[in-house]
Design a protein around this nucleic acid. Structure first.
Length: 370
DNA sequence: AACTCGGGGGT
DNA sequence: ACCCCAGAGTT
């Protein structure tokens, strides 16, 4: 590369930086973790906000900060407590990894914390984006934090029409992002691009007129038709139908709850014992697996079937009531009162169906006695 | 490189 | 119905 070219590129980059930074000083949202940035709150924020809107995650951040204000406090919590506080936020491996990472940090950095990219990257739940965000914001490490906002802003700015979810499209964006990072103020720079993506260079109907990068943006003067603007993606999500059955097993007023395995949906959360099969349910209320009849007394459907949407699955959820015979026992999980079961970390779909299922189960159970 | 993993909001 | 969101881990 010719020195002269490098020089003029450098000048151009500097001008873009100052334009962006001026814009950010005016438009920065007053988010709570920006008041007094420190590693714990920043790390917690970045993990909570993974694939999550600020509007949705902010209340969770506030509650976590209040309940567990530092690495040690979080490390001393139980994973069930952390998952309960995480309930409803989704991607529950984040909560389990958060807890695990807090224990690692409090053990390996007593009264301290990691300060380098590689140390953060070694922690569970911390990937390239999160490590870069933490280190640039807290330690002024000159690394680009490339998230969905940045990919959108830069793909439009550079006019990248290659799919951003594969190397051909992603590589030039990361290269430019890294070259553009302000070595003197990387944290503010990274947050400024993300803020621009969140407020102005939005997924649809970007407000180019008020964008500080407009004059040099490859897309601002292109027609903003619905699918004509970067970013483009290759990946297509195939949503599958799944018939899922929750087995509500009751005995002496108690209900059986299972802790779900870490792998799979709702990992680490508690739920009724579950059976599922691909496809749509054959009927409004499918017959349960025959094997359950061997030890349990079937009392039939319970509560109202519901459809529950996940990003890659359409769950058709049904509940089935069972009674455990007197003098029989079951070691599939834990017996809870309906009240104590509700204190467990539950999937959203159970949270929203809870009263309906409980009422239906109690009604059918008492009818049996009579 | 392709999957998996939630839930909520927008159009 | 489809898209996206302050992505990471596994296969």
């Amino acid at each position: 590369m010719h020195p002269k070219t490098a020089f003029s590129e450098d000048v151009a980059l500097n001008m873009l930086r100052s334009d962006l930074h001026r814009w950010y000083l005016e438009h920065e949202r007053p988010l709570p973790w920006r008041e007094k940035p420190e590693p714990y709150g920043t790390w917690l924020c970045e993990v909570i906000m993974q694939q999550t809107r600020i509007d949705q995650g902010t209340a969770y951040w506030e509650r976590f900060m209040h309940r567990w204000p530092n690495f040690q406090a979080l490390a001393n919590a139980s994973v069930d407590e952390v998952l309960k506080e995480w309930q409803g936020l989704g991607y529950y491996s984040r909560a389990r990894n958060l807890h695990k990472a807090a224990q690692i940090i409090s053990e390996e950095f007593p009264n301290g914390y990691p300060q380098e990219m590689n140390q953060w990257l070694a922690l569970p739940g911390v990937g390239t984006y999160t490590a870069a965000a933490i280190c640039s914001i807290c330690f002024e490490t000159p690394v680009a934090a490339v998230d969905g906002n940045v990919l959108r802003v830069l793909s439009r700015f550079l006019g990248i029409h290659e799919p951003i979810d594969r190397p051909s499209g992603r590589k030039p964006l990361e290269t430019f992002a890294q070259a553009w990072v302000d070595p003197k103020n990387p944290g503010r720079h990274n947050q400024a691009i993300m803020e621009l993506g969140a407020l102005t260079c939005t997924p649809n109907a970007p407000d180019c007129a008020s964008c500080p990068l407009q004059k040099k943006c490859a897309s601002s003067f292109m027609p903003h038709k619905k699918g004509s603007l970067p970013p483009f993606k290759q990946g297509k999500i195939k949503v599958q139908d799944v018939a899922l059955q929750f087995h509500v097993i009751v005995h002496n007023g108690l209900v059986l709850m299972n802790k779900r395995p870490d792998s799979g949906v709702w990992g680490g959360l508690w739920a009724f014992p579950t059976s599922e099969k691909p496809g749509l349910p054959a009927a409004e209320t499918d017959q349960p697996p025959a094997s359950l009849n061997e030890r349990l007394i079937s009392r039939g459907p319970c509560g109202t079937p519901v459809k529950h949407l996940l990003s890659h699955r359409r769950l058709h959820v049904q509940f089935w009531l069972w009674l455990l015979p007197e003098n029989e026992s079951l070691d599939w999980g834990e017996w809870h009162t309906w009240e104590s079961a509700m204190e467990l970390a539950l999937p959203r779909v159970l949270e929203s169906c809870w009263t309906d299922v409980k009422n239906s189960a109690e009604q059918k159970e008492s009818k049996t006695v009579a």
